[in-house]
Every structure is written in C-alpha cells, then in structure tokens.
C-alpha cells in the first residue's frame, strides 16, 4: 500500500495480563473505538510505528506526484491538463496533511523529508514504475488510486485521531481521482486502434505492480498482528488485494480490456476471483531501490529540495527581519 511492510515492535501481541496498567488502559481505549490524541499517553512502539507508517504514506504522496506530473505538460486537451494538474496538486495536499499528522507525534516535516531523501525511509513501490503513454494516466487513476482507496477508506477509522482526520479529508478529496482515471480508460478503450493498444499496454504494465501495492501476505506477520491490535492497520494485505481484484476484474471486462493473468477466474465456491500472485522477487528488488525509476525519483526529489533551499531560507530570513523591524518600531 502507500505504507508497505511497516515494522512494528517485532514482538508478539501482549495479552492483557502481560501489559502494565497504563498499557492495558491504552489498549482498552483502542478496543472501545476511542481516538488516541497527540497528548495522550501511548506506548513508545505505537508512536514509532505510526511515525513510520504516516511518514511513508506522506512520502508516497509526494513521490507519487512525479509519475503523473510527467504528463501534465503533455496532456492532450486543456480540460485533461486541468484535471491532471488538480489531481497531482491534491497529492501534494495529501502529503502535506499527512506530514502534519506525523508532526503531532513529535517529529518535524524537515526531519522526515531528510529521511526520505537519504533513502532511510521508503515510499510505495508503485511510484518506481514509469508512465510511458497517456493511457498510463488512466491506468494510474483507475488501478493505483483504486488500490489506495481500498486501504484508505478503512484507515478513516484508525485509532490515532490526527491520522484518522487526515484520512477523512483525503478520502473526500480523492473520490474524483479514480473516476477521472477510469474516464480516461473509457475514452482510450473506445477510441482509435492506437488508443486501445495504449490502454491494454497500460493495463499490462500496471496490473501486477498494483497488486504489489498491498504488500506480500501478512497473515502470519507479528508486525501485522500488533498493528491491527493497535488499529493502525485495519485489514490484512490479502483481504484488501482480494477485494481489489474482485472490484477491478468486472471493470476491465466493461472496458473490453484483458487483465494479463490467464489464471484469473471467478470462483463460485469462494465467491471471489482466483488470480495469480505478482512476482514478489521484483517487489523486494523495487523496495531495495532497484525499481525501473527509483534513481530518477530520488534524484528529482533531492534536486527539488536542494534547489529550493535558498527560497526557504530567504523567506524565513525576511520573516525574521520583518519581526525585528516591528519590534524596533514599538
């Protein structure tokens, strides 16, 4: 997902008897569906895991601007250009909201940014794939945003108040993102032969990377169990992936496009689609920084940050001078 492979404390989930009273009271509040707020007591593991998860989610939004930003200057009509620009701008906004949520846990945005730029913190694997044709703008909206929404909707109920509130705002704004993607896909799938070919090619390239967004199966993961007990992870990776495939397969059929999986088949007994797993070796390679565009993405973010330093410093220096002048005048 936008936050993949989030490590937790690495220990098994404690039983109530093993917890100290403070921890037990905390867990009871979480179990009762109460929100945890910034100044409330929280286990150190909860705080650290949240910083990792929200930070990674925020980084994904910011790096996620790049593959779609790649097409803003080439959008084929004025309306498409405006829609795409508004969408990529939303992603910057979503990154901003999420960094602010992380900041309530006592870490600064600049600190998180430096951890992203040094490679210490990760972002979603999906944004390391290239966007090669205009149909990719459709596929990204339809598949990538579709997968993200699967994860983000339940996160509106996450236990940490500022995170949950950021997700509410994000989900509200994001509702047009997937639809605009599908709208592009419809136009392409019903367009000229070249457009249909582009649409199918985009689906071929983005299908498995989209399935990877949910992360490998975590049924037996201790991290996952702890994060679910804390309600900072709401569903298992497999649950969400299945839900995504079940939703997307009929949409592909509607578009007249073929999902690149010969094993994809409706399973009447399970009430779900059967499908092939993505290549997890590729996933781990991408996470290690060997994605097709990993180097490009990090270079672009680093350049933007370095070349922007004089602007951030200049405006801050001006603000300080202004304050000093005001004090002097009083």
């Amino acid at each position: 997902m936008y936050a993949q492979m989030i490590k937790s404390t690495g220990q098994n989930v404690k039983s109530p008897e093993e917890m100290d009273p403070q921890e037990r009271a905390f867990q009871e509040r979480v179990d009762a569906g109460e929100k945890i707020e910034p100044k409330d007591w929280m286990p150190e593991g909860y705080r650290r895991t949240l910083i990792r998860q929200i930070g990674q989610h925020a980084h994904s939004e910011i790096v996620g601007q790049l593959p779609e930003g790649n097409w803003i200057t080439r959008a084929p009509t004025l309306e498409r250009k405006a829609i795409l620009l508004a969408k990529v701008q939303d992603e910057a906004g979503h990154g901003l909201y999420l960094y602010c949520a992380a900041e309530t846990l006592g870490v600064s945005r600049d600190h998180l940014t430096r951890d992203l730029l040094s490679g210490k913190m990760k972002y979603s694997s999906i944004f390391n794939y290239p966007t090669l044709t205009w149909a990719d703008m459709g596929a990204v909206g339809w598949l990538v945003d579709g997968a993200a929404i699967m994860n983000q909707v339940p996160l509106q109920r996450t236990s940490y108040g500022p995170y949950a509130r950021a997700m509410v705002r994000i989900c509200k704004e994001e509702s047009f993102h997937q639809r605009q993607g599908f709208d592009i896909m419809m136009k392409m799938a019903n367009g000229t032969e070249a457009q249909r070919k582009m649409a199918q090619d985009a689906l071929n390239r983005f299908w498995y990377p989209s399935l990877m967004m949910f992360g490998p199966s975590d049924e037996n993961s201790v991290h996952s169990a702890q994060n679910m007990a804390w309600k900072i992870k709401m569903n298992t990776n497999d649950e969400l992936r299945q839900k995504f495939v079940d939703q997307t397969a009929p949409q592909a059929a509607f578009l007249g496009l073929t999902i690149p999986d010969e094993h994809l088949k409706w399973n009447e007994a399970r009430g779900h689609y059967d499908f092939s797993e993505p290549d997890w070796d590729e996933f781990f390679d991408v996470l290690k920084g060997n994605g097709p565009c990993s180097a490009d993405r990090m270079e672009a973010r680093n350049r933007a940050w370095d070349e922007g330093a004089w602007v951030r410093e200049g405006l801050l220096a001006h603000a300080e001078k202004k304050k000093a002048r005001k004090v002097a005048a009083e």
Binding site: D90, L315, L316
Partner: peptide, 24 residues
C-alpha cells in the same frame, strides 16, 4: 480547525491556507 501547514510568517500562512485549504 481544518489542519496545519508551514509558513515563514503569519501573512504567508494566511496565503498558504487559502491555497491549501480552500481549494474546494
């Protein structure tokens, strides 16, 4: 309260708030 943001001073914060939080 709708959220937070960063800005060098109050005037810039108001402009940033206009751009970040009143887009819709």
């Amino acid at each position: 309260h709708v959220g937070s943001l960063h800005a060098a001073d109050a005037e810039a914060a108001i402009r940033n708030a206009r751009d970040v939080y009143t887009r819709r």
